[in-house]
Computed example of a mutant assay.
Amino acid sequence: MNKFSHIDLRVHDLQRVMPFYEKLLPELGFTQTFHSANWRVFAAEGKLPDVPYFAITEDKEHQPNSNLIGFWAKDQAEVDQIAKLVQECGGTINDGPRLFPISPTYYAVYFEDPCGNKYEMVHRLN
């Protein structure tokens, strides 16, 4: 059983990041939306609360840090696809996509949302 439940993410400008997440999160499998006045929630297929979800709220005082959220890719092509999407929707590529010396098959892209929150999309065989 995968114990992952959810991510509660803070951003300092919700209006600025929503176009980014509206394109990125469905590509990562968060295809359902459950938005409210204070939260924008993107959930995987199924019924809440039994599915993983990604919730975003605005905190004007939020400062991004070195925390990083990682996502698995099914292959290197998906890593490349997400890298292209990130660039198209206002994110910043920090490194990659490329092989990293973590393992012989560790292919990843490191990126940030428009508010500076950090992510990684990775495919590896071992």
Results as ranks from 00 to 15, higher is better:
Asp50Asn: 13
Leu9Arg: 05
His12Ser: 14
Glu61Met: 09
Ile102Met: 10
Asp80Ala: 06
Gln63Leu: 11
Pro52Glu: 08
Asp59Arg: 02
Asn65Lys: 08
Pro114Asn: 09
Glu112Ala: 15
Leu68Val: 08
Asp50Ala: 10
Phe20Asn: 01
Val86Gly: 09
Tyr53Thr: 04
Phe111Thr: 10
Ile56Lys: 02
Glu88Leu: 11
Thr33Phe: 00
Gly90Lys: 12
Met18His: 10
Gln15Glu: 14
His6Glu: 07
Gln76Ile: 12
Tyr119Thr: 04
Asp113Trp: 14
Ile7Pro: 01
Pro26Ile: 03
Lys47Ile: 14
Ser5Pro: 02
Gly96Phe: 10
Leu85Met: 08
Gln15Thr: 12
Glu120Ala: 08
Leu28Ala: 13
Pro26Thr: 06
Ile56Gly: 04
Phe20Cys: 02
Tyr106Ser: 07
Glu120Asp: 13
Lys84Pro: 01
Lys118Tyr: 11
Tyr110Pro: 08
Glu120Gly: 02
Asn38Thr: 00
Ala73Thr: 05
Pro19Gln: 11
Met1Asn: 11
Asp50Ser: 10
Asn38Lys: 00
Gly29Pro: 03
Lys47Asp: 14
Lys23Asn: 11
Leu14Lys: 15
Asp75Tyr: 14
Thr105Pro: 03
Val51Phe: 07
Glu88Trp: 04
Pro52Thr: 08
Ser66Asp: 04
Ile69Glu: 07
His62Phe: 10
Tyr53Asn: 13
Pro114Gln: 10
Asp113Glu: 07
Phe54Ser: 03
Lys60Tyr: 00
Glu27Asn: 11
Asn65Thr: 09
Leu25Ile: 11
Asn65Tyr: 00
Gln63Gly: 02
Val17Thr: 14
Asn2Gln: 14
Cys89Tyr: 11
Leu24Gly: 07
Ser66Phe: 04
Met1Cys: 05
Glu45Val: 01
Asp80Cys: 06
Met1His: 09
Lys3Gln: 13
Val109Met: 05
Glu120Trp: 04
Tyr110Ile: 09
Met121Asp: 01
Phe100Ala: 02
Thr33His: 00
Gln76Asp: 05
Phe71Tyr: 15
Ala83His: 02
Phe20Ser: 03
Pro19Asp: 07
Ala77Asp: 14
Tyr53Asp: 09
